[in-house]
Design a protein around this nucleic acid. Structure first.
Lengths: 129, 129
DNA sequence: TTATTTGCAAATCATTTGCCCGAAG
DNA sequence: CTTCGGGCAAATGATTTGCAAATAA
């Protein structure tokens, strides 16, 4: 099971080549340049299976539609409240957060995600004019 | 503007009386016990306005539908990957995260949200059987 | 061959909106 | 009064799904 298809290959390549955390529709338009008759449903199905196999991440917060991240390594995100862009934050992920919560609550903690928000550089500039 | 109505009163009271982070539909069913002919659209409209005025928080992540939190104070959340429950995590919010990101990136950082995930106590027990 | 994936279109599901009426200020 | 909020139903928009045909293994 888990067949290799040109559709899936193309989707993961596109995702690996961008750092822009695109949504399903953007990916669809991009793939269409290589496979013009691919359907949006196929894009969704492949995004789902790539996510389940841990090859990509799905981001989504505050009533926004899902965005996808070709970088499966854990890392934090910044979301600009003005332009909506999502930007990776460099720097190490603090695994001690999971330990602290586990100790305090007794829950088995296996993941955490941190999103910071505010204004990106471009939008700060735009605002000062 | 911002009128006081029995619909909005009822919704915020319900939200203040629970720690279960319900979704819009659960709230709708609850309010209906007090105001039987309220419409779901009204629930959504009021949740939106309560959120915009900062009286409640909206939570939503990973392709889940929105959940609402009557506690407007900043705090972190635990989401159980098995039963889907969202549980408040006590303990202080670390505002230095925002400062660190701001210093490193130059972005204006005004908020951050942290969600940890794993298995809650009940689901751990259920799994060991 | 034969099980999985695709394309297509229709279906779903949460959420939003238009419109007209009733109620708050 | 006059304007905002409510009820209802229809609209929207992202995502999922059913199905027959295509394709990877």
């Amino acid at each position: 099971m888990e067949r290799k298809t040109k559709q899936k290959e193309s989707i993961i390549n596109i995702l690996r080549q961008t750092t822009s955390h695109p949504d399903a529709d953007w990916i669809y338009e991009r793939v269409r340049q290589e496979i013009p008759n691919i359907s949006l449903g196929t894009v969704y199905r492949n995004l789902k299976s790539l996510k389940e196999s841990g090859q990509i991440q799905e981001l989504n917060s505050m009533g926004e539609m899902s965005h996808f991240d070709g970088n499966a390594e854990p890392h934090y995100h910044f979301r600009c409240d003005c332009c909506g862009r999502i930007i990776d934050i460099e720097g190490p992920v603090d695994k001690t957060i999971e330990k602290r919560v586990a100790r305090k609550t007794g829950f088995r903690v296996t993941r955490h995600s941190l999103e910071v928000g505010g204004l990106c550089l471009d939008c700060q500039r735009a605002q000062n004019q």
